[in-house]
């Protein structure tokens, strides 16, 4: 009997919090298909009445949405590829290769990880300005590829694999890069997937960097465009269905990835914790 009550209580708590965490998304989806009047009059209802898709048409007609999506895709693809490639190279070297200055490089990586991102707004702007790449794709993308946490994760991973296989490859006469490319990297698949997911999610959602790196609307990514759409500078009154619909479309890629690769997200969250 006692066990039954506690099981019931357990489910009750789970369902309650499940609602707390998911209801806002349900409301968002429902409201995106409502009319403006319906959304304002029935903010609790999950059933659009009437069912209305015009806000999505307006997202594509009256905003720069397609452009933001294009820029976001470009940034995400290049940043993710860059991070995965450079982080794994550097992580491998720091874990396995002996070279003068290795300790210094690793200390730098740790130091960079300790710098809170929010104090870098003005510094980043200064360097982009000085290099002449402020308000350009280069300025939007290059600084995001610098990723100390990813290097740290890869170094941790490579240190956790026994070196026997590489040793064998080396004895067979394979060079450092050959060994890395055809022996080490294939073994590192799980870590590479985790890193890819972290990088994808991070760069798709990245917002503050776009605020300090670009100002031309042609260079806006999805989060930047969305932020300006709601915070006034592009604002057109309280068009909630339109804004919620745009936010919904921005959420979908990461949501899909989350459903498919959930366990890698979990691993990423816990890897991120070790840097504390």
């Amino acid at each position: 009997m006692r066990r039954l009550t506690s099981t019931f209580l357990g489910y009750a708590i789970l369902v309650f919090f499940g609602l707390v965490f998911l209801y806002p998304f349900f409301i968002q989806i429902a409201s995106a298909f409502k009319t403006q009047a319906d959304a304002a009059a029935h903010p609790l209802s999950l059933v659009p009445h009437p069912f209305d898709t015009s806000s999505f048409l307006r997202i594509f007609d009256s905003t720069d949405f397609p452009r933001w999506v294009g820029n976001s895709v470009l940034v995400t693809v290049l940043v993710t590829a860059g991070r995965v490639f450079f982080d794994s190279l550097a992580g491998y070297a720091l874990a396995r290769l002996r070279f003068p200055g290795r300790g210094g490089v690793f200390a730098t990586v740790l130091a960079v990880m300790a710098v809170p991102g929010v104090v870098l707004f003005i510094p980043k702007f200064l360097v982009l300005n000085q290099l002449g790449i402020y308000d350009s794709y280069a300025g939007l993308i290059l600084p995001l590829i610098a990723d100390a946490a990813g290097i740290f994760i890869m170094k941790q991973f490579f240190e956790s694999v026994p070196p026997d296989v590489e040793e064998a490859a080396r004895v067979d006469g394979a060079g450092v890069f050959r060994t890395y490319w055809s022996v080490v990297l294939p073994m590192a698949r799980p870590a590479l997937i985790t890193l890819t997911i972290l990088a994808f999610q991070g760069s798709w959602n990245e917002f503050p960097h776009t605020v300090v790196a670009v100002q031309s609307p042609e260079l806006f990514t999805l989060p930047r465009g969305l932020a300006d759409l709601v915070s006034g500078s592009l604002g057109k009154g309280t068009q909630y269905p339109l804004k919620l619909g745009a936010a919904l479309l921005a959420t979908i890629p990461v949501a899909v990835l989350f459903v498919i690769f959930q366990r890698y997200f979990v691993r990423g969250a816990n890897e991120g914790a070790t840097k504390g």
């Binding site: 917002f207 999805l222 919904l248």
Partner: peptide, 11 residues
């Protein structure tokens, strides 16, 4: 936690 901070703020 994994969704965009901007999109969530809109919600």
């Amino acid at each position: 936690s994994v969704t965009s901070s901007v999109a969530i703020s809109v919600v």
